[in-house]
Every structure is written in structure tokens, then in C-alpha cells.
Amino acid sequence: MIKIENLSKTFTLHNQGGAVIPVMEGANLTVGAGECVALVGASGAGKSTLMRMIYGNYLTAGGSILVGDLDVARAQPREIIRLRRETLGYVSQFLRVVPRVPTLDVVAEPLRALGMDESRARDRAAAMLARLNIPEPLWELSPTTFSGGEQQRVNIARGFVRDYPALLLDEPTASLDTANRAVVLGLIETAKARGAAIVGIFHDESARAQVCDREIDVTGFAPGRAA
């Protein structure tokens, strides 16, 4: 489902003397359907960078990133837009939404983008919010005013409200209490069971142990190390 080959990444800082900073080299990774792979490595080792490259958020310097049959490293913007709409979900640590839009609509949006009618999409969104224990009185409010944990769960709800064939999870359990953490791990296991390919960053070791099939240490992709 996800196949990364010989991936590299550099940052060029044009406004700081044109400094070229290589951050990744020779990265390889394969994630099959129904598999969950954890990216590990010290902070700054490039876990998030790799995730962002898979999502098309960062450009690549070389190599390929196949998600399904699309090479994200070479894809046109519109192909990536479609990939994100139809195939690749992303649960980020940060919530970025239009202010004043009700939480229910924020979560329903991935369904609406696929053409589902409003009431149906909102019903599904409501079910997901309930499952993640977001109190119902908050559903009609904008998540911009929510606590960190609540925002995180809204992000998770968006990522799981429909069955993406591939998912990127950036610290999905980071600021959750035990009960919600269990719900999220359950969602991940369900997604795996239906065949989703998942790449995740989990600092939470026991969560990692519970849902991840393999660990990839991205330190191995640091420039100069790969051989």
C-alpha cells in the first residue's frame, strides 16, 4: 500500500546564506494493507518529516513514495488532493480549521468532500464524536476553543470518520486519558482489520506495542548513515 524507496530530503535556506541542510537520505519503507508501522527515533531524527513527505506536505529531493499507485514524490497537486480526499487520511497533532465552524461539520467534512449529503455525514460525525467521548453540547461549537485533548480527539474523529485505505497518525494518543486512549487504539485496530495501511508516530510505548506490527528507526535514514 505504501512503498518508499531511496527517499531523500534537503532544506535550502535562501534567506540564511543559501544553506543547504540534508535531513534524510536513502529512506526505504514498505507498509502493507492491514499493517501498522511505527516510526521511532530521537526527537528531530526526521519522523515528522517523513510523515509530511508521505502526505505530500513536504517536497522530496529524490526517491519515490508510492501510496497505492500514486508516486507522491512526482504527483501533480491535484493528484495529491485526490489522494488525500479518497485514500490517505492524516491525524496531525495540530488542529487547523476555519474558525467558527461547528465541530460536527469539521468532522463531517471528509465525508462531505466525497459528496455525502449533509445529514448523513453529520450523523456519522456525531457517532464518531460520541465514541471519542466529546460531550454533545460541544458539537455545535467550534473546536478552536477546545482543550488540547479535545482538539486531539476532534482530529482523530476526522481521521477515522471514514475508512481511509491508508492513514498517517502523528501522536494520536499523546494527550489522552486512559479511556479515550483505549478508544483510539480500538479505532486503529479496527482500521487495521479492515485492511488499512498505517504509519504512525507513538511516543507511548505500550500503545506502540499494542497496535504496531513493526518499528522503523528513522535514525537510519539520517544523511551519511545510509549505505
Partner: peptide, 21 residues
Amino acid sequence: QGLTDQVLDDPQHGYTQLLVS
């Protein structure tokens, strides 16, 4: 030019980097 979040989060041109920062 490119995907909006890509251009904003990983700008390639010096001017864009300046604009974003």
C-alpha cells in the same frame, strides 16, 4: 507554485520562505 500546504510548510523559493516566515 504547488499544493497550498506544501508551499507554505516547505517553501522552496527564497521569496516564499521570506513571506512565510
